[in-house]
Design a protein around this nucleic acid. Structure first.
Lengths: 347, 347
DNA sequence: CTGAAAGCGCTTACAG
DNA sequence: CTGAAAGCGCTTACAG
């Protein structure tokens, strides 16, 4: 055993109380901004805090308050078979997730709660998520599920743990979620395409077992029907760029001159595929995307796309969870946001 | 005051000890897998744990062990003036960051340590980072600094807090970091371009106050010099797609037929700009990128690029920090990784 | 190998 | 308005 270097022991509440000449209770009260403390005490304590460089110990506080001040942000359902050469980071690399994470952090930070990130793909992972909040490491979970059939929403509600979802769950569950009005978004895309004069439009869908992907299709179809077209050629993608290219190939073979891709990544894939065939966008084929992620600017022409107000949605997610933490009896709520069309060059 | 619903009180060590008929110390020992516990005790405890559904309380454990089991991942230096229409999430939306985050999580998760994410742009934010670890909420920090002149590395080392950086700091500091051999990477790009037969090559640099960006330039220039070319046209970008397009414009005006863009985003911007002028890549101009991020596949032709082994680098970052946490006297180390050229269509 | 006890650094009734 | 005291749920010397 060698001597530890003179361990720069961090000062505690007790130290502050000593130098301020008051009780620990008083220090605690001023540190937490509780009302009804005499001014001279407040001053003495603040001075003592400054002198000692005191910083409250979170673990100690958490132990008694039963609040960790952190929430778990879990990205769920990245099944390994789908992860490409870029590994598990691929979901996180989706520009869409960046906007979401940024939005979450912006609304959490001011309330002094911090997000811990977790990927959940295996059953073990799912169990880990549940444990993490049961052991009090996080107060609740913000879940973005990238896959159909995700068991986590169910697991979490069964355990009565506070959770809010991004996107409507695939079956009814007593939990809050935020979503964009996907049908309205699909309809906007359809309208745009017909207004442009497209005579034969198709759609590249996402995985149809994901509710949002299905809704975009339905909204698109209905709007087309309103314009008198009964049949819409369809090709399924997986939300990746490559899948967008492949699906576009199929659609092009059917002679479309306008396509709605259910997310931006697939839309850029579609544009690339069209250009590969010597077609020009939007003159030969128009394409509209969905999301308005950073990839919308990674192609020429830039993407006309249905924008999700992700930052706002993220803020609402955070708000719903925080509210639920205050009030355990809060009833689950859904917050649905309207998309907007952002017009750029592709359609 | 209404009655609280019969509060499903979570069971504690004490409960387990009671049902197992042993002391709390024994329960603690088996929970933590400490050696030298009689088998019948281990069994009794495990049975009791199963029966009670016991989950250790992290705050309590952290309070006594002085270990939170979490690390802070901070993305620093997103100055607001640079954040575009996508807000603060834009850094996170960089496909490059996705790979990094994925790699970090993969190596942290098995050791049961969890990353909390934090963006740091203002002075307040910087202070918040320091406080967060001083208050014991995190055991150390993994810092990726996206900006020159970031004060955080200095602040952290001054406070003697465990930290490891992604990228060499802009001035010498007693801390560990991982980096790619940027000069070697620049040289690879140069070699590729001359082998292709390019006669007039240029470079799109990143912000030159960032060490890595500077190194890529130096490596590129030196390799070109080795091939007898003394002057290399240069245009500066900011690592964004748009800046790549703009810089490419300048270079094209000078008649280049090959360009090295210091990251993939700028490389796709460059390709787009070339195509806007009716040029074809790689025949009229070849372009090679840097990173091998997901954006490398978002353009046609796909990007030939200098790949950073990000996942491996992330694992090393995590390893260095964890090692430092075990051994406070560990000397700072730098781990430099070799890039590789991945050949696709653009050069 | 096991247990009784102290202690980690806070907050919060409870008296006064 | 303030303080003494109990207690949050663990881990870890220390005896035995």
């Amino acid at each position: 055993m060698q001597d530890q270097p003179p361990a720069p022991r961090v000062s505690t509440l007790e130290d502050v109380a000593l130098v301020a000449g008051v009780s620990r209770a008083s220090v605690s009260r001023v540190v937490n901004g509780k009302p009804g403390v005499a001014e001279h005490i407040v001053d003495a304590v603040n001075a003592a805090i400054a002198r000692t460089g005191y910083v409250p110990n979170r673990a100690a506080r958490a132990l008694v308050t039963r609040r960790s001040g952190t929430v778990l942000v879990v990205v769920s359902g990245t099944d390994t078979s789908r992860s490409g050469p870029w590994g598990p980071g691929e979901v996180l690399a989706d520009p869409f997730f960046g906007r979401l994470a940024g939005g979450l952090m912006s609304s959490l930070a001011p309330r002094d709660v911090h997000p811990v990130l977790m990927l959940a793909v295996t059953d073990d992972d799912h169990a880990r998520v549940v444990s993490y909040v049961r052991e009090g490491s996080a107060d609740g979970v913000l879940l973005v599920s990238a896959q159909a059939g995700d068991p986590l929403p169910q697991l979490l509600t069964d355990a009565a743990l506070p959770v809010v979802l991004f996107s409507r769950p695939d079956h009814p569950l007593a939990l809050s979620y935020v979503d964009v009005n996907n049908r309205a978004g699909g309809a906007m895309a359809a309208r745009r395409l017909v207004e442009r004069g497209c005579r034969s439009v198709g759609i590249i869908t996402g995985p149809l077992d994901i509710p949002g992907a299905e809704d975009r299709l339905v909204g698109f179809r209905e709007a087309m029907a309103d314009h008198g077209v009964a049949f819409v050629p369809t090709a399924a993608g997986t939300f990746s760029v490559e899948s967008g290219s492949a699906a576009m190939g199929e659609l092009l073979d059917q002679g479309v001159d306008g396509v709605f891709a259910s997310n931006d990544n697939m839309a850029v894939g579609a544009i690339l595929a069209a250009q590969d065939r010597g077609l020009t966008v939007p003159d030969d084929v128009a394409v509209v995307g969905f999301d308005d992620s950073t990839s919308a600017l990674m192609c020429r022409p830039a993407l006309t796309t249905v924008r999700q107000p992700i930052e706002t949605m993220a803020a609402e997610m955070a708000g719903l969870l925080l509210e639920r933490l205050e009030d355990p009896d809060m009833r689950p709520r859904a917050a649905i946001f309207d998309p907007t069309l952002v017009e750029r060059g592709s359609a």
